[in-house]
Design a protein around this nucleic acid. Structure first.
Lengths: 227, 227
DNA sequence: CCGCAATGTGTACGCCGTGCACATTGCCAA
DNA sequence: TTGGCAATGTGCACGGCGTACACATTGCGG
C-alpha cells in the first residue's frame, strides 16, 4: 500500500496508482455508493481536488477501478484453470477448465461484490474502461473464448453448438453471480455450492456437452462474502 | 400523471404515489445515478424535504420504485405468456410460455434499463423492497415457478431436472439481460434476437427439454432501447 | 541554471441528503 | 358545532459532494 498520509515532497510520486488502490479499498469497505473522490484523496493524504490531475472525473477513476477488477478476475480465472485435473487436450480437462472458469467468476463476485458491481454497473460511461488482463495478458472474455475453443477441439462441445456458446455460458454464470451478489437469490452459504453446481451443469447441457464429467464444486470457497 | 406543479390546497392529496411516478420518470430520463430526491419534489411541485413525510430516506423511495418495476415486469410477463400458442396443457404451449417469460424479461430490461438496474442493483437495503405483483397477484418469481411447474406437468421438463430449474433459468435470462443492458455484451440490434434465441435454447437444453419446439423470437421487439 | 510543463493546493459554487422547528389543515371527539 | 391533535407540507441549516479555476511548487529538459 502506498503511504496513506504524511508526505515529505510536494509531489506524491505515483498518485494515480495510489488513488486507484484507495478507491478499491474504500469501495470494498463501504460499497460503491458511499465512495467519494474527496475521501480517496484524504486517504492518500492529498488535497480533495488533486485527483483531477489524473482523472477527468469521478467516472474515469471508477473506470480504472473496473479495469483493475478485470485484471484480478482474469488472474483468478487463470489460477483456477491451472489447477484443473485431467490430461492435457483430453475431454476431462476441458470440462474441468470450463467449470474452473465459472467457479472463479462466481467466487470473485462473492468475495468482492462492490468491485464486481462497478465492473458491470452503470457507473462507467461507454468504452471508458479498458478490460484489464491477467498474468498471461488475456482479459476474462478472451479466456472464456479460448477455453471454449479448447473444449470444442477436445470434442466436448459439438461443432453446431460452438456458435454463440460464449454468450450462453457467460450469461448463465454472470446471471447467477449477479443474483447472488445482489441478494435477489437468497441462498444460504450451504446452498450456494449446490446451486452453482446445477448452474454449471446447465451450462454444459446447454452447450451439448456431457455434464456427467463435471467435477464436484468446492463448497468452502462459496461460504463467505468478504468486501 | 399527477399534476406536476401548481397546487391550490396546502396538502397534495397523494404525494406518495406522485413521488414514485416522478422518480420513475426521472430515472428513465437521466438514469439512476442522476436521480435526486429534491428533483422529484420539484417535479411534483412540493418542497425539497416533503418526501420525508412518506419515505424514511432516498433508499426507501427507490425501494418503492423497484417494487413498481416488479409489478410492471410481472404484468409484461403475464401479457407475453397469454399470447403463447399451443393447446392448454400440451408441451408446445408449455415451451412457448417459458420462452415468452424469458422474452418479456429481456424486453423489459431493454426498454427500461434504469428501472431494471434499480430493481436488482445495490441501492436497496436488505428486504426493503416488497416484490410487486402483476394483474394476477403474482410476482415475477412466482410466475417463473408456476410456468416451470406447468412444463414439468406437461412432460417437457423431466422430473430429475425440475429441482433447481428456477435458478438455472432465471440466472441465464437475467445474466443475458444484465450484460446487454450494461453494454458489456456489445450486440447490434440485429444480433440481439438471434443471441436471445440461443440463450433460450440453452435454457431448454439445460432443463432437459426438447429445444426444437422453441418458437421463433420476434426480432423487432429487441431492436430499440427506450428509457 | 533557467524556465516551462506537470503536478498538487485553496477557494468557491451549486447541488445533494437529511435533521429540526414551524405552518397548515383534515378529521375525530366532545 | 367546535376545538384540538395528528398528519402533512415548508423553511432553514449543516456538512459533504463533484468540479471549475486560479495559484503554488517542483522535476526536468534545453
Amino acid at each position: 500500500m502506498t503511504p496513506p498520509l504524511e508526505r515529505d515532497s510536494y509531489h506524491h510520486g505515483d498518485l494515480r496508482h495510489a488513488l486507484v488502490e484507495a478507491a478499491v479499498k474504500l469501495i470494498a469497505e463501504r460499497g460503491a455508493e458511499g465512495f467519494s473522490l474527496r475521501e480517496a484523496g484524504r486517504l492518500v493524504g492529498v488535497s480533495p481536488t488533486a485527483a483531477y490531475r489524473h482523472f477527468a472525473d469521478k467516472s474515469a477513476l471508477l473506470g480504472a477501478v473496473a479495469s483493475d477488477g478485470f485484471s484480478r478476475l482474469a488472474a483468478a480465472m487463470e489460477k483456477g484453470m491451472a489447477r484443473a485435473p485431467g490430461a492435457a487436450g483430453g475431454p476431462e480437462r476441458a470440462v474441468a477448465r470450463m467449470a474452473a472458469l465459472g467457479e472463479a467468476y462466481v467466487d470473485f463476485a462473492l468475495r468482492h461484490p462492490s468491485h464486481f458491481r462497478i465492473m458491470f454497473g452503470p457507473w462507467l460511461r461507454e468504452t471508458e474502461c479498458v478490460p484489464g488482463v491477467g498474468p498471461s495478458g488475456k482479459d476474462p472474455f478472451q479466456l472464456l473464448v479460448e477455453t471454449l475453443d479448447e473444449a470444442a477441439a477436445a470434442g466436448v462441445i459439438p461443432a453446431e453448438a460452438r456458435a454463440g456458446a460464449e454468450v450462453v455460458a457467460w450469461s448463465t454464470v454472470h446471471g447467477f453471480a449477479a443474483l447472488v451478489v445482489d441478494g435477489t437469490l437468497p441462498l444460504s452459504a450451504r446452498e450456494r455450492a449446490a446451486a452453482l453446481r446445477r448452474v454449471l451443469t446447465g451450462v454444459l447441457l446447454a452447450l451439448g456437452a456431457d455434464a456427467s464429467r463435471l467435477p464436484p464444486v468446492e463448497a468452502v470457497k462459496f461460504a463467505t462474502r468478504c468486501s
